[in-house]
Design a protein around this nucleic acid. Structure first.
Lengths: 193, 193
DNA sequence: CGCGACGTTGATTTGCCTCAACGATTGTGG
DNA sequence: CCACAATCGTTGAGGCAAATCAACGTCGCG
C-alpha cells in the first residue's frame, strides 16, 4: 500500500489515517491495448495515474480527424482535463485509448479535492505539479507558434524519447499536428542530415 | 486594503492577521504605456495582478520575430510563467510590455507560496485557478492544431472582445501566429461575409 | 504640417496537405 | 510455419493556405 501511495503522491511522511484515506480513494485498473478508457460525450469524473503501459488522449474534429493532446506513460496522469477542469462541462470532449497494456490507478476528482483539503501536503504537491504543467503548456504553445514541422519533430524525439519508442509514427504526427506523409518526408530528410 | 485583497484573492472571510500577511506582500506599481515590466534574460521572481490597463507577454524567436503568449487586462495575472514555474530556470525567456497605462500589484512567488502554506483557503483558490488554466491551455493547443487562421481569429474576437478593443491588429496576429498581412486579408473577407 | 506607425493590397513563393499508389512490416488463421 | 491480409510507412504529383517581399494609402500625434 505504502509503495503505491508514495509513487502517486510523493515520498513523504503521512499518518496512518492519511494513508488510509488516500488508499481507499484509489481503484486499480488493468487495461488491454486498443481498449478505451474514455469516449467523447460520456460523463467524466476521474483522473488516472499510469503505473505501467502507454495511453493517448485525443480529440476528433469536425472533419473527423484525430488530434492527440497527450500521451501518458509510467508516472504520468491522464484524463480529459478540458472537461474535468473546465467550467460547466461534465461530458468528455476527448477519447482516451490504451496503446500498450496498462496498469492504472483511478481516483475521482471529487475524492482528490477532498484529499487536498484534508492533507495540505498533497495540496502543495498538486500546486507544484500544476504550475510545472502550466509552464510546459506555454512552452508547447510557443513551439507550435514558432517552430516548423521538422523542428517540432526533432524537439519531440529528444524531449520524449521514452514515448517515441512506444507509439506509432502516425501518432507522433497527430500529436505534432502534421500528416503521416509529411512526417515520413521529414524523417527521410533527417537521415540524410 | 480589504477591497484590493478581495479583488485579488476572492471575497471570503479572512482573519486580521491573514489580511495583514497578504497585504504586506503586495506592492503597487503604476506603469506607463510602452514601458517594460520584464525583459528576457533578466531574473524573474514575481507575478503581477492587473488592476487596470493592458499588457502583453511575448517571446522573440531565433529569427527575431515576436510571438505573443498572453495578454492581460483587469482581473488577470501576468508573468513569465515558463521561467517562473518551469524547473531550473530563473532567467526570463519572455518580455512583458505595457500596452495601456496600467496599475498592477506585484507579489513574489516566494511570498505567494508562503501565503498558500499559511492560508489553506488561498491554496485551494489557487488550485482552482490553475486547473481552469490547465483546461484553457489544452483548448488553445487543440485550437491551434485544428482551426484555420480565419477560424482562430473569429474565435479570438468572440472569446476576448475586451482585449480586441485594446490592442493593435498586429498584436492579435502575433498572438494567433499569423502575419499582419494575412490578418488583414481575413478581416477583409469577413466584412464581405 | 510632416513624419512615423499602422493597415492594406498585389505578386510571388513555400511548407505542408491531399490524393493516389505502392513497398514493408506485422499479425493471424489454417 | 507459411500464406495472406491488414496495418503502417514511403513516394510522387498537384493544390492550397499562409508567408514573404514590396509598395502604397491613411491615420494620429508631436
Amino acid at each position: 500500500m505504502k509503495t503505491i501511495i508514495f509513487e502517486l503522491f510523493g515520498n513523504t511522511t503521512f499518518t496512518e489515517a492519511e494513508l488510509q484515506l488516500m488508499y481507499s480513494s484509489l481503484q486499480k485498473i488493468e487495461l488491454k491495448k486498443k481498449t478505451f478508457l474514455l469516449r467523447a460525450e460520456r460523463e467524466i469524473h476521474d483522473v488516472y495515474y499510469v503505473h505501467e503501459g502507454c495511453l493517448r488522449s485525443y480529440f476528433i474534429d469536425a472533419a473527423g480527424k484525430e488530434h492527440i493532446l497527450q500521451f501518458a506513460i509510467k508516472g504520468w496522469w491522464i484524463s480529459d482535463y478540458i472537461a474535468l477542469f473546465g467550467k460547466e462541462k461534465s461530458k468528455a470532449v476527448c477519447n482516451i485509448e490504451c496503446l500498450k497494456d496498462a496498469t492504472l490507478y483511478k481516483i475521482s476528482k471529487k475524492d482528490f479535492d477532498e484529499i487536498c483539503k484534508k492533507i495540505p501536503k498533497i495540496a502543495h504537491v498538486h500546486i507544484e505539479k500544476l504550475e510545472y504543467a502550466f509552464a510546459a503548456f506555454q512552452k508547447r504553445i510557443l513551439e507550435n507558434l514558432t517552430l516548423s514541422a521538422r523542428e517540432r519533430y526533432l524537439n519531440f524525439i529528444t524531449t520524449y524519447p521514452n514515448i517515441e519508442q512506444s507509439v506509432k509514427n502516425y501518432h507522433i504526427a497527430s500529436y505534432l499536428g502534421i500528416t503521416t506523409e509529411s512526417l515520413s518526408r521529414i524523417r527521410k530528410e533527417i537521415v540524410f542530415q
